[in-house]
Structure formats: C-alpha cells, structure tokens
Amino acid sequence: MLEARGLHFGYPQGPRVLAGVELRLEPGTWLAVLGPNGSGKTTLLALLLGLLRPSAGEVRLDGRALHAWSAAARGRRIAYLPQNGPYPPGLTAEEVVRLGRLPHLGLWSREGPEDEAAVAWAMRVTETAALADRPLAALSGGERQRVLLARALAQRPRYLLLDEPTNHLDLHHQAALLRLLGRLAAEGIGVASVFHDPNHALAARRAVLLEGGRVADAGTPEQVITGAAFRRVYAGDVRVLRGEGRVAVLPRWAEVEE
C-alpha cells in the first residue's frame, strides 16, 4: 500500500501545513480527499509522491520507506495528475502521452509493443485518440486535462494520484472521468483524488476530510460528508441534503429546502 504515517510538514518560515496525518491507500481502493483551501490536500499528494519530504513522520510505498525507492522506480508505481500543468510546449497530444512511458524506458531505450499498447489504451479510455496529432498548446483546457490524464495512465501505475482532476471538464467528461476512476480502482489500481466538489467524492469508496492540516474525519463518503462536519469545516457555508439514498452538497445560498 501507499501509506502516510504521522505526517507533519511546514514550509521554511511558513505556517504548519500538515500535522500528524495518517492515511492508507490500498490497490483497488478509490480514496477521495476533501477539505477547504489551505487544508493541506495538495501538499499531502506532494508528500505521497516524494516531491516533498516530511518534517516528521514518513511515507511508505509497498512496505518500504518512499525515499528508499529511486525516482524511476517510484515513477513506475505512482502516477500524478497535477491541478495545473506544467505541460511540455511544442508537443502533440500523443507525444505528451508517450512521456508517461519514460519511467519504464529511461532516456535512450526504444519503445516496444508494451509501450505502444499502454499509450493506445490510455488515449482510448480518456477519449483523446482523436486529438493525437494536435499540438497540446492548441487544445482547450478540458482537452488538455484529458491528455495529461492519459500521460499519467500510460505509466500503467499501481497508484494514481489526482489533484482536482475535474478542472476544466464539461459535465459529460466529468461523468466519464468519475466512471473511469471507478473502473481503474475495480481493476486493482489505488486511486486518490482531491476534490473541491464533494458531490464528486460520492463516487469514491473511501473519503478523508482535512481541516487545518489534520484528518477531521475518515470513512465512506456517506459517513464523511455530513451536515455537521461540513458546517464546521466550511464555516456553515454549505448544506448537505439527503433523501432516497442520495446525498447532495450545495452552497448555502442555494434556495433549496433541507
């Protein structure tokens, strides 16, 4: 599993960002990470990736300390879709997706049938095959987001971390993404996705709610997304509606009866 044990982190001369976070991501599980701005969601992903080192605690990957793995070995196991780029200028969509195979190839190895199959599969499931020859810089924000997701999937990772993956996506592609993440988890990939919209988190199997750098609640999405918890964490600015086995989260200004 990919595991955070008592993670603490703070930037130099800055405030504490995380304090004692415990988290476990197992293959075959989809975990949604929720919380307000500044609660530590993106920093947590950076620590799980090894892009940052914790000031205390540790991250373990498949039973070993994360820093004991080489960057290439981590890249073969963990893929990442950041919230906003960066993306390589001047490349076509397919060339960008092929970059996902670098952890498996190194800089000088030639692609083989396995690499070709991984790229084709990633572009098919993200509905980007029709964009293959178009420059990435010429794509819309939503198209670019889907290509960058395809690049992450081309790694064929054991764990997939996504920071606001529904950014720039229209309603059709939001729904398609949520279905895809469910399929990936069912196929054995450990998925952790940060969402600002808690309604998207309802599709996941597990959820954690961060508040002030700590885990405020953890469990199934239905257990975590409650009126009491969200009124506390979001200063009373949201309402959680339940009925007929469904949950909806709305901003407080929405004129809907609870």
Results as ranks from 00 to 15, higher is better:
residue 124 R to G: 12
residue 143 E to L: 06
residue 80 Y to N: 10
residue 179 R to V: 13
residue 7 L to N: 02
residue 79 A to E: 08
residue 233 V to A: 07
residue 87 Y to A: 15
residue 217 D to N: 00
residue 249 V to G: 07
residue 18 L to C: 00
residue 116 E to A: 15
residue 74 R to V: 14
residue 56 A to T: 06
residue 46 A to E: 15
residue 175 A to F: 13
residue 213 G to P: 03
residue 233 V to C: 11
residue 72 A to E: 14
residue 200 H to Y: 14
residue 196 H to G: 01
residue 67 H to N: 04
residue 27 P to F: 02
residue 203 A to D: 06
residue 95 E to C: 01
residue 198 P to L: 08
residue 29 T to P: 00
residue 182 G to I: 04
residue 187 E to L: 08
residue 119 V to M: 04
residue 121 W to H: 14
residue 99 L to Y: 13
residue 161 L to N: 10
residue 22 E to F: 04
residue 163 D to Q: 08
residue 30 W to C: 01
residue 131 L to F: 01
residue 39 S to F: 02
residue 230 F to W: 08
residue 86 P to F: 01
residue 156 R to C: 09
residue 49 L to M: 12
residue 199 N to C: 08
residue 255 E to T: 07
residue 1 M to D: 05
residue 91 L to G: 05
residue 104 H to F: 08
residue 239 R to A: 14
residue 70 S to P: 12
residue 143 E to Q: 15
residue 113 P to L: 05
residue 95 E to G: 04
residue 225 I to N: 10
residue 75 G to M: 03
residue 134 R to A: 09
residue 58 E to C: 13
residue 225 I to T: 05
residue 75 G to A: 14
residue 1 M to R: 02
residue 139 L to Y: 06
residue 239 R to Y: 08
residue 229 A to M: 08
residue 160 L to H: 12
residue 211 E to P: 01
residue 63 G to C: 11
residue 180 L to G: 06
residue 55 S to N: 13
residue 167 N to G: 02
residue 171 L to F: 14
residue 258 E to I: 09
residue 237 D to W: 00
residue 32 A to Y: 06
residue 151 R to A: 11
residue 150 A to Q: 05
